[in-house]
Design a protein around this nucleic acid. Structure first.
Length: 918
RNA sequence: GCCCAGUUGGCGCAGGGGUAGCGCGUUCCCUUGACAUGGGAAAGGUCGUAGGUUCAAAUCCUACACUGGGCACCA
């Protein structure tokens, strides 16, 4: 027998081990079937998984397991990402703790440490995914930087190279001085920060008055090579072409006219620093201005900034420049000025625009097919609201900077002839004009241009997203023409968060189309991010990070998963509070105990399989017909919601069905039949209105068992994708009774009731029973009748239908409202000292001598009347509206009339009762 | 600046033309033979504001406000 409370850990360990031992989730190519394929968004090997991963992978697991239940071959590929800058930063932090730098170790030793770290991290992550229950194809584990993936990267680079889609060029790139590397445009985030607008007077070279420029970055003035004004600005007409004397530096710089300048902003005069601002760079190009780099790649001032500033950090230089300007009497004004600052998405440090030689991918040509795929419906995003931003991004695409000045990554397979480029290529790589080298993974033999034999390899590595972009086919060992690539590509669905829609999803689409000729996945489910309970983003610095392992230990994996999923409404972020897991844990326990109940009421195992299909439908009880109708409706709703990629709604439907319908009503009614025979307090007293089919024993008991077993087994199977462990355990426990042969639940097939079990009549009749039960329970509570006390009830009035129904189902009322006896009074006589409940168009008198105080009962009735009146008046508005009666659809009018009549009837009955009492 | 989403009981969220739903919390009663991680009863909302469409608006439309996000950016 099961324990009273579900203990998750041993169950999870048992099934994880069994699934793995059975190699249950491995998928092999086999002809004639269309597989369901997903590739995991590979987590970075930066540490352990967070709740966001837990959500992402739970969602994928739901679809993987659901498709398995549907009988499709499934392949869900696990793996990890080397994570470029992010992972290198983690290692550099570790080194720092040992008072080391990567330069001190040297490239080779550093990479060896990275490999060791990666091995350790991978096993942590994969272990966590298994702990989470993920039905991953473990034999296909891949890593974005292993040998197979390196082949894919080299091939992709080569193909793009041959098509002229990768190129090296000197551009103004986003430089992170902390990470020491260039970044792509989408790796720059903009943050609103408080700053100042400094107004500086630039005197004319002859000593006369010059323009005042406004800047947010005074330290860059040391690198100014011009001042620009709008050619149409009347204030500055005379100034164009004049020469100014740059304060502090003492250099002479020209005033140029450029359309770019907005005369409405600041003073209308713009200082131009071509080396440190992308717009100034463009102005510099147009006017052939010199470019003076005053900030070095490590964020300190260069010699060109002047001896007073060289070596200072950007921040310190700013302070000193401001001070010096003040001292020189040219600082005219300082205003507070909040503005957005571009920062590194990894380390949050302000980006420094820098001019350097980098590798780029030409994107326009790649983006077009991706846009066509979207427009033609060959690629769909869920929810659809992401389509427009995705489309806009593709249309406004800019070239992708793919070279990174770090060590951890796929090294760019290009070599440069030292003889052609000069010795400087060794020391000043990013400043040397080298548009093209020799494409090769190994050192080339001789230079095709000069025959020289000395080469330096490009020191840079590729953006980590370059290898990620190939993931849907690199995991199947492209460029090899493998059987699995043929069978599993394109994949079926990609599930990920919106924060990497452009970084990853779009790039996979583009690379898949370019290199495979087909979109890597036709559908993509975009989910929100998991936030803390206040809606704030989780971050280590805020200290609001939730550790999935802790949650799984504390509440069980199934509960943790379920709480995430039930809140994962399409397109919405999830505010995650621990209290929401307790609800799911309680639900798991409810499942546990409802199964426990069913098992307790079955004969010794193995006798026979209980199946609804074997039952004589005509002889089923009302509650059987009702729960089967509800069950079937739930199954179809859940299927529909899963098809629509709305697992939250599916989870909610299952939760409500199991708890509110199956447990609260069906199980309670089944008790009458299962335990009624000689079961003391459960005994049903055939009331005045006659016997009931709900008495225990024989075929009826067997019907109840069959319905319990089938509905519960099916619900467990339907819940399995959401809560894999507990459902495996419980479904297993029911196996001797439910006729399922399959070894594991996932092989048992999706639950289904053959035939149409919808039953409006049963639902209507159960609705009436429930209404009466609720009214009687409410009355008991209002009168403080002790729950243990069985009361007598006399009913009066009502339609013949309802009277007959209640007479037939008196056993239901007796059990659920805890009655001793219920009988109908043909004359409608109200017993003395009784309270009255009104429901289903009739009165229910509860005689309670000594309990009922006349005045109190009148007060209670008045309250009920007030509620009934409010209810009625809402409906009356409708019925009194002639336009409604004339114009609304007839079915609507009829419905409203029925509702009105019912409310009217209820109010009348209550009023009548009150009159009789007073 | 442009675009998108949201604004529903104390909190977190569903719903999306026809008398407002869920979970948590709150109040009262109950250790009854599945489950106190439970059962029963109850309180609590003019669905952001102002207009409009409609027989009927929380739901559709238009403005506005606030919140969040994306994109662009003027120093």
């Amino acid at each position: 027998m099961l324990d009273k409370v579900y203990t998750s850990r041993p169950v999870e360990e048992k099934w994880s081990a069994s699934w793995r031992a059975a190699d249950l989730f491995h998928g092999e190519p086999r002809s004639g079937t269309k597989p369901f394929v997903m590739v995991i968004p590979p987590p970075n090997v930066t540490g352990a998984l967070h709740v966001g991963h837990a959500l992402d992978n739970t969602l994928q697991d739901i679809f993987a397991r659901w498709q398995r239940l549907l009988g499709r071959p499934v392949c869900w590929v696990p793996g990890t990402d080397h994570g470029g800058i992010a992972t290198q930063s983690v290692m550099e932090k570790q080194l720092k703790a040992e008072k080391l730098t990567r330069q001190m170790l040297g490239r080779e030793k550093f990479l060896a440490r990275m490999q060791a770290w990666t091995r350790q991290c991978k096993s942590t992550i994969l272990g966590q995914l298994e702990r989470l229950g993920c039905a991953l194809d473990w034999r296909r584990e891949a890593f974005t930087m292993d040998a197979d993936r390196a082949d894919a990267v080299h091939e992709a680079f080569k193909v793009l190279w041959e098509k002229g889609l990768v190129y090296r060029g000197e551009r103004m790139v986003n430089w992170c001085v902390r990470c020491g590397t260039a970044l792509s445009d989408i790796e720059v985030e903009f943050e609103e920060r408080k700053g100042h607008l400094w107004h500086i007077h630039y005197p004319a070279a002859d000593g006369g008055r010059g323009p005042v420029v406004a800047t947010t970055r005074p330290e860059t003035m040391l690198g100014d090579t011009a001042v620009a004004v709008n050619p149409k600005d009347p204030r500055y007409q005379d100034l164009v072409g004049k020469t100014l004397r740059l304060p502090l530096a003492g250099r002479d710089i020209p005033v140029v006219a450029d359309e770019y300048v907005d005369s409405g902003f600041g003073t209308g005069a713009l200082k131009v620093t071509p080396a440190h601002d992308p717009n100034d760079f463009e102005i510099g190009q147009r006017h052939k201005l010199a470019s003076v780099a005053v900030i070095s790649p490590d964020g300190h001032m260069t010699a060109a900034a002047g001896s007073a500033y060289a070596g200072l950090s950007r921040e310190a230089a700013r302070e000193k420049v401001v001070e010096d300007l003040k001292a020189a009497g040219v600082l005219e004004k300082v205003a507070d000025y909040p503005h957005s600052v571009g920062v590194c998405y990894r380390c949050n440090q302000p980006i420094e625009p820098m001019l350097s030689w980098q590798w780029f991918v030409r994107m326009e040509e790649l983006a077009k097919p991706a846009a066509v795929a979207l427009d033609s419906g060959r690629f769909r995003l869920y929810p659809e609201s992401w389509a427009k931003p995705y489309r806009d991004w593709l249309s406004n695409i800019r070239d992708w900077c793919i070279s990174r000045q770090i060590w951890w990554g796929h090294r760019i397979p290009v070599w440069y002839c030292v003889q052609c480029h000069g010795e400087r290529i060794r020391t000043d790589f990013h400043q040397v004009a080298a548009a093209r080298g020799v494409l090769s993974v190994e050192a080339p033999g001789s230079c095709p241009v000069c025959g020289g034999a000395e080469f330096v390899r490009d020191p840079d590595v590729l953006d980590t997203w370059f290898s990620s972009a190939l993931w849907p086919f690199s995991v199947f060992r492209w460029p090899g023409r493998t059987a699995e690539l043929k069978f599993f590509y394109p994949t079926s669905l990609l599930v990920t968060g919106y924060e990497i829609l452009y970084l990853w999803v779009a790039r996979m689409q583009m690379m898949g189309l370019a290199l495979m000729g087909e979109a890597p996945f036709p559908e993509c489910l975009i989910h929100g991010i998991v936030r803390d309970k206040h809606g704030k983003k989780m971050s280590k610095s805020l200290g609001n990070v939730v550790d999935p392992l802790v949650m799984m230990d504390k509440y069980g994996t199934d509960a943790f998963r379920f709480s995430l999923v039930i809140q994962a409404h399409p397109g919405k972020d999830i505010p995650f509070a621990e209290s929401s897991i307790t609800g799911s844990r309680n639900f798991a326990n409810k499942l546990w105990n409802s199964t426990r109940f069913v098992l307790m009421n079955l004969p010794p195992a193995g006798r026979k399989a209980y199946r609804v299909a074997d039952l004589d439908r005509a002889r089923l009880e009302l509650c059987d017909r009702w729960i089967l109708a509800e069950y079937q409706a739930t199954l179809s709703l859940v299927r529909q919601k899963l098809d629509a990629y709305d697992p939250a709604a599916a989870a909610d439907a299952l939760y409500g069905f199991l708890w509110d319908k199956f447990c609260d009503w069906y199980v309670e009614l089944a008790k009458i039949r299962l335990q009624g025979q000689g079961a003391g307090r459960m005994e049903v007293r055939p009331a005045g209105a006659g016997g009931t089919s709900a008495t225990a024993g024989g075929p009826d008991q067997e019907s109840a068992r069959a319905v319990l077993v089938e509905v519960l087994s099916g619900t467990l199977r339907m819940l399995h994708p959401f809560m894999p462990f507990i459902t495996e355990e419980l479904h297993g426990a029911l196996k001797p009774f439910n006729g399922v042969k399959a070894g594991f639940i996932v092989e048992a097939g999706a639950p289904e009731l053959s035939g149409d079990w919808s039953d409006d009549e049963a639902c209507r009749e159960m609705g009436t029973v429930m209404e009466v039960v609720a009214a009687l329970r409410s009355l008991r509570a209002q009168l403080n009748v002790p729950p243990g006390l069985r009361i007598d009830v006399v009913s009066a009035g009502g339609s013949a239908d309802v009277r007959e129904l209640l007479a037939k189902r008196a056993g239901y009322l007796t059990a659920l409202a805890h009655l001793r006896d219920i009988r109908h009074s043909r004359e409608g006589t109200r017993p003395p000292h009784s309270a009255t409940a009104v429901a289903a168009g009739m009165s229910f008198y509860v005689p309670l001598e000594g309990v009922i105080d006349l005045a109190q009962e009148c007060g209670r009735l008045r309250k009920e009347i007030a509620k009934a009146e409010a209810d009625l008046s809402k409906l009356a508005v409708k019925m009194e509206n002639k336009d409604f009666l004339a114009r609304a659809p007839q079915a609507e009018v009829e419905l409203a009339r029925r509702q009105y009549d019912a409310a009217r009837g209820r109010l009348d009955l209550l009023g009548e009762t009150l009159r009789m009492l007073s």
